[in-house]
Design a protein around this nucleic acid. Structure first.
Lengths: 294, 294
DNA sequence: ACCTATCGTTGAATCCAATTCATCGAAGGG
DNA sequence: CCCTTCGATGAATTGGATTCAACGATAGGT
């Protein structure tokens, strides 16, 4: 069934259709324009219909050609990607997707350490809120915020994080008790599981009506808080750098009830168990978090 | 970028991986087993890793091979399918998807007439309740029950249908007024927009509590009614054959309010406008239904 | 244990399909 | 009007895919 697939001709067609020129296609494939012409003629004879409109010395795809191009392009892309995946596995490449704030605040600062700890490992990191589609084999693993709903995926909780009010040192003097928050600007983070309402409730207080800035990324809320814009309610893990550098402090940590919860998960398809790069990374990640795997 | 895709080797790999045998792969591709061996060795050299485990005279895919096979299989399938689509267009083939009951009750009996009316046209008909995915180019058009939600599709209403109580002639004697239905078995059709409740309401009566048989396909409800199992509430278009043959009658047609509504739609992607087979079919379909297009 | 059949491997030889070459016509740009 | 660029075409060529032939390994039968 695949026996009579004119693969070479299809490759020539793809290049010609994409570039819109036989000459350009030939250059791309390092063959002559004549070869492209022959190949496309062969295809057209096979299907019994034209694929290009010849207009003088120019060529333009017709409807059938457009249709064929869609299929052929995605088909070749799939082949190319398949080879890339198995090659990547061999070269110890980890294709990692990560929630944006954790990537920026926690993972990126540690990448040099990872490279040092795991010689030969190379990491390709993508940050985004979209959920990567593992079935398309675009990524080996994902660190995501929130428990994944999808079935058939391994999801390892990355330990508990502590959520507490954070602000610049200059503001901390005005913060002795949770009730002092009523007088300050509260920075709200969207898309988070723990919000100001929850924190006030845990401390037996009514949350004030919404005011202050809103951000839809934790790292922006943290940066805003460090700039003195107000008090952010964020995970100490995500604010680790600012806390260590003294740009942020957690003034109520000793005199309030902080919220602990599991925010992030390492997720990958079961078949990735055999991926050497991922195994290396998982071990390193859990060690960095002070966790034992399980 | 596609220049160095070893297409021939990938084809050999696909056959070998699928059949699990180099010899079988060779037979399928009409080349020798030796050629398969050479091709796969070339692939393995290229990616720098093995794809098969050699165990004596047997070969078995390893993890990398499994991964590559998934991609390569779907890639070739896409190429093959692309050629099929453009070839089909040329041979005046209409790949039609259709709601099951309309296909069985209305379209199938008319197919001989279509073939006669449109010489050279060939039809491939699939019946199913699933919505065909046009982006995968599996079908040229769909006749579906209910207005389609999807955007970016042309959806032509196929005229109004009349829904009225239908039963076998033997039962019709006991049906003079809508109220007589209280004494008879009512056949309920699931997945329909018009149900007994609606019909009774339109006739100023309270619907009796559910009793009688239930079917999830109209053609089954119609067959059951023709067999004397009770009274079905169905479209006269779907019951056309049984009504013409006298196996079913519509006893209340003259003394009740029947429900008229648009149940079926012809749906296709905009690009299909240039499809000759579809144009032929659309013209024929509207003529059969006594409709003017628009 | 022995024989036989089957399967995959390997390197050299072979061959045929893909490609090039040479030439042509057509169209656009200056 | 000349010059350049592009694609088409058919015959010639070439190099990469394929076969060939010999070999090792394994399984099954007797």
């Amino acid at each position: 069934m695949l026996r009579q697939l004119p693969l070479g001709a299809l490759r020539a067609f793809e290049a010609a259709a994409r570039t819109g020129s036989f000459r350009a296609a030939g250059e791309e494939l390092a063959i002559s324009a004549s070869a492209i012409s022959h190949a496309i003629r062969k295809l057209e004879d096979l299907i019994g219909a034209g694929l290009f409109e010849r207009e003088g010395r120019a060529v333009r795809l017709n409807a059938a050609g457009e249709t064929l191009l869609r299929h052929v392009a995605s088909g070749f892309e799939e082949l190319r990607h398949g080879l890339e995946v198995v090659s990547a596995r061999q070269m110890n490449l980890l294709r990692l997707h990560c929630a944006p704030s954790l990537a920026a605040q926690w993972l990126l600062p540690r990448l040099p350490r990872l490279i040092a700890d795991a010689p030969g490992l190379t990491v390709r990191l993508s940050a985004g809120t979209d959920y990567p589609k593992f079935h398309a084999d675009e990524f080996d693993a994902d660190i995501r915020y929130g428990r994944p709903r999808a079935e058939g995926l391994a999801a390892l909780p990355l330990g508990e994080e502590t959520v507490t009010p954070l602000c610049a040192p200059a503001l901390a003097a005005r913060l002795r008790t949770p009730a002092d928050l009523y007088d300050l600007e509260l920075i709200e983070s969207d898309n988070k599981q723990v919000r100001w309402t929850d924190w006030f409730a845990a401390n037996g207080l009514r949350a004030p009506s919404p005011r202050g800035s809103r951000f839809d990324r934790s790292f922006m809320a943290i940066a805003a808080a460090a700039d003195g814009l107000g008090v952010a309610l964020e995970s100490t893990r995500l604010a680790e750098r600012e806390l260590d550098a003294g740009r942020l402090v957690a003034p109520l940590r000793e005199c309030s009830v902080d919220i602990r919860y599991v925010g992030h998960f390492l997720v990958y398809p079961p078949r990735a168990r055999s991926n050497r790069a991922l195994r290396t990374f998982e071990t390193w990640l859990f060690a960095q978090l002070g966790l034992t795997r399980g």
